[in-house]
C-alpha cells in the first residue's frame, strides 16, 4: 500500500506536501507534516486517526478556512494558496460545503433559510428541483419553517448537510458531523451523505472516530502525527478496527 497518491486531473480537491506548523521554536507543533492526497469526484472518503493527528487541520486547509505553512491545496483546478480573502470566501461559498461537529446553523434563520444561506449570500436562486430533491432525501419537508432551536440534534445536522450540498459544490467536508449524535441519528446523517455520493454524484470527505461511520465510505485515510500512515479501499468496520489496532500498536 502506497503512502501517498499523486494528484490526478479528475480529483475534486487535493493537497501536495501540505505542511501546517503552529507556534514557534519550542512550542512548535507540526499539525500537518507533508500530506499529499487527492479526493476523486463522486467518492466518499473518511479520514481517521488519533486525536491531535491533524484531521481537522487538513480539512480546514482544504476547505479554505485556514492557510498552509507550506505546500499547496486545490479545489477543482483552483489552487487556494495565493487567493485573497475575498476570493477564498467566494470559493467557500460556491465550491465547498462544510459541516461542523455542532453549531452549524444560524439561530435566527429558519431551516429553509439556513439551507439556502450560501445561495442567498451569493445572490443566486437555488435550483428548485435540486433543492426539492435534497430536502426530500433529508426528510425535512415538514420542518422547513422551524428555527434550529426547534429541531433535534440529528435534524440540525441534516439541515447542515443539505446546506453544504445545496450549491452543488465541488466537495463537501464534514468534521465529525455525527460526533454529538446518538447512533441512530448518526446513521441517518451518514446514510444521507452516502446517498448524495452514490445517487447525486457528489464528493464527500468525512472525519470520524467511529469505524462504523467510516464504513460508509469508499475509502478510509489514516492520519497520525500529521502524516498519512495508511489507506483502505471499500472498508468494512472490522477491517478498519484491525487497521487501527495495528497503527496504535
Amino acid at each position: 500500500m502506497s503512502m501517498t497518491t499523486t494528484p490526478s486531473g479528475t480529483a475534486a480537491a487535493g493537497a501536495v506536501d501540505a505542511v501546517k506548523v503552529y507556534g514557534t521554536d519550542d512550542t512548535e507543533v507540526r499539525a500537518l507534516d507533508g500530506v499529499t492526497i487527492d479526493f476523486e469526484r463522486s467518492r466518499f472518503t473518511a479520514i481517521m486517526g488519533p486525536s491531535g493527528s491533524g484531521k481537522s487541520t487538513l480539512m480546514h486547509c482544504l476547505a479554505g478556512l485556514d492557510r498552509l505553512s507550506a505546500g499547496r491545496v486545490r479545489i477543482g483546478d483552483v489552487f487556494l494558496d495565493d487567493l485573497s480573502d475575498a476570493k477564498l470566501t467566494e470559493l467557500r461559498r460556491d465550491k465547498v460545503g462544510f459541516v461542523f461537529q455542532a453549531f452549524n446553523l444560524i439561530p435566527t434563520l429558519s431551516a429553509a433559510e439556513n439551507i439556502t444561506l450560501p445561495m442567498d449570500l451569493a445572490g443566486r436562486k437555488p435550483d428548485a428541483a435540486w433543492m426539492d430533491q435534497i430536502i426530500n432525501i433529508v426528510g425535512l419537508a415538514d420542518r422547513l419553517s422551524h428555527r434550529p432551536s426547534e429541531l433535534s440534534g440529528g435534524q440540525q445536522q441534516r439541515v447542515a448537510v443539505a446546506r453544504a450540498l445545496v450549491s452543488r459544490p465541488e466537495i463537501v467536508f464534514a468534521d465529525e458531523p455525527t460526533g454529538n449524535l446518538d447512533s441512530r441519528s448518526g446513521h441517518e446523517v451518514l446514510g444521507f451523505m452516502r446517498y448524495a455520493v452514490s445517487d447525486l454524484n457528489q464528493t464527500v470527505v468525512v472525519v470520524t472516530h467511529d469505524p462504523n461511520a467510516a464504513a460508509y465510505a469508499d475509502r478510509v485515510v489514516f492520519l497520525a502525527d500529521g502524516r498519512i500512515v495508511d489507506q483502505m479501499e471499500n472498508p468494512t468496520a472490522e477491517r478498519i478496527i484491525d487497521s487501527m489496532k495495528q497503527l496504535g500498536g
Partner: peptide, 16 residues
C-alpha cells in the same frame, strides 16, 4: 462570535 464565524465559513464575505 461563533455565529459570525459560521457565516464566514459558509461564504459570507467580509463586506457582507
Amino acid at each position: 462570535t461563533r455565529e459570525l464565524g459560521l457565516l464566514r465559513a459558509v461564504g459570507m464575505t467580509r463586506w457582507q
